[in-house]
């Protein structure tokens, strides 16, 4: 994958570039909005990572708005020091696909980046989701593993559906809270972990190969290999 990072803070930029390069991606760097816009319109990228506040007249939101007006549909992840909910809404309205508040863990950035890339390549209407021998029938809302039917509560089903749709990726706790519960707040205790471990009890217990993995310092991932 080829990404463009528009970020004025060189230390943050180095950190992101290093992380993404290690994950096998190519990352170009633009230090301000003007250059970011110039490169984003002139070259092809799989996704843009744009800092909200940039020097040099064109800030992140203006850059994204301008880019969208040219018809570009490249996924954009906004990085911002502004955490308020309405700032987030403003960012998404300007044309961003997701919004990540500074400071962030690299795993969170990577997980969200993967999620917005996946969104761009949404497959045609699927009625059955499959990961290894785990199956979720979206129409009948039935879950089977190795042919055996599993009983899941409605919320567990939604959690599983989200994990299966992002199979192979790392999803963070915040992503789960937003996507599965539609709330954006800070649950002081790790309530999400309890939900995930219940789900794990139902889908992994009694099977030789676990599918739902905890990724240290990041979140969870549903995939056949550990």
């Amino acid at each position: 994958m080829r990404f463009l990072l528009v970020e004025d803070d060189l230390e943050v930029a180095r950190f992101v570039i290093k992380g993404l390069s290690e994950a096998g991606h190519a990352v170009e760097h633009a230090p301000d909005g003007r250059e970011g816009l110039y490169r984003a319109t002139g070259e092809a990228f799989d996704a843009l990572i744009v800092d909200r506040m940039l020097p040099g007249g064109i800030d992140g939101l203006t850059m994204i708005e301008t880019l969208r007006r040219t018809g570009s549909v490249t996924p954009v992840l906004i990085l911002s020091a502004l955490a308020q909910v309405d700032e987030r809404v403003r960012g998404l309205k300007a044309g961003g696909d997701d919004y990540l508040t500074k400071p962030f863990a690299f795993a969170e950035l990577q997980a969200r980046l993967e999620a917005i890339l996946r969104r761009g390549h949404a497959k045609a209407v699927e009625t059955v989701l499959r990961v290894a021998d785990l199956e979720l029938d979206l129409l009948s809302r039935e879950v089977r593993r190795a042919g055996r039917r599993l009983d899941l509560l409605p919320r567990e089903l939604r959690l599983l559906e989200y994990l299966m749709r992002h199979a192979g990726q790392v999803v963070t706790r915040t992503m789960l809270l937003e996507a599965v519960w539609d709330y954006h707040f800070d649950p002081q205790t790790n309530v999400i972990d309890v939900h995930v471990s219940r789900l794990r009890q139902k889908i992994d217990k009694g099977f030789p190969r676990p599918l739902l993995h905890t990724i240290r310092g990041a979140g969870y991932s549903l995939r056949p290999e550990p």
């Binding site: 519960w181 709330y183 309530v191």
Partner: peptide, 13 residues
């Protein structure tokens, strides 16, 4: 109701 459902597993634990 959402919140109760959200905290239910933690309470049970």
């Amino acid at each position: 109701e959402d919140m109760v459902e959200f905290y239910q597993p933690l309470a049970e634990q």
